[in-house]
Simulated assay, not measured.
Amino acid sequence: MLYKTSGVCTREINLEIEDSVIKSVEFVGGCAGNTQGVARLVEGMNVNEAIKRLEGIKCGSRSTSCPDQLALALRQALK
């Protein structure tokens, strides 16, 4: 699934989910070290658990962040 982000440096998030488990995540753009770290931490995690942990995280004064955008992408994937 390809998710176009909004309000963050990352332009898009590519993710693969199988049986409600996150198989892979790739952030395009953004802070490479942070986004790679987030991607590796959620791989193998249940989608709902990842959403619970990431949703609502802010980046500085922004109302969203790359982890929050990932939670939005995961929510969309569940639909």
Rank of each mutant, 00 (worst) to 15 (best):
R53S: 09
N34G: 15
L70V: 05
R62N: 09
L41V: 00
G37E: 08
N48W: 08
Q69H: 12
C31L: 02
Y3D: 01
C59T: 03
S20A: 09
L70W: 06
R75S: 11
K4E: 03
D19V: 13
L78K: 05
K4P: 07
I51W: 01
Q76G: 03
L2I: 01
E12Y: 00
E26L: 10
Y3L: 06
T35N: 05
R62K: 14
S24L: 00
L54Y: 12
A73T: 00
D68Q: 10
R62F: 04
R75I: 11
I22T: 01
I22R: 01
G56A: 04
C59Q: 15
C59W: 02
R11Y: 00
D68T: 10
L2D: 04
N34Q: 10
G30D: 11
N46V: 10
C31W: 02
F27S: 00
T35E: 07
S61D: 08
N48G: 02
S6I: 13
E43P: 06
A39G: 05
G33R: 05
I51K: 07
L74Y: 12
S63T: 15
E18H: 13
Q69E: 12
E16Y: 05
N46S: 14
S65V: 03
M1D: 07
L15R: 00
K52W: 04
K23Q: 11
L54T: 05
C9E: 06
I57N: 10
Q36L: 07
V47H: 09
N48E: 12
R53H: 12
M45C: 11
C9L: 02
L2Y: 00
G60R: 08
N34T: 10
L78A: 03
Q76E: 05
C31S: 11
G7K: 05
T10F: 02
A39L: 09
A71W: 08
L15H: 01
C66N: 03
V42M: 10
A32L: 13
V8G: 09
E49N: 06
V47Q: 12
V42E: 05
T10W: 01
S6V: 04
K23G: 13
T64K: 01
N14L: 03
Y3V: 08
V28I: 07
G29P: 09
I57P: 14
K58Y: 12
R53N: 10
V8E: 04
S63F: 13
V21A: 12
E26D: 09
G29H: 00
P67M: 07
E43M: 11
A77W: 06
T35I: 05
S65L: 02
N48M: 02
E18S: 03
Y3A: 09
C59A: 13
L41P: 11
R62T: 08
M1E: 08
Y3C: 05
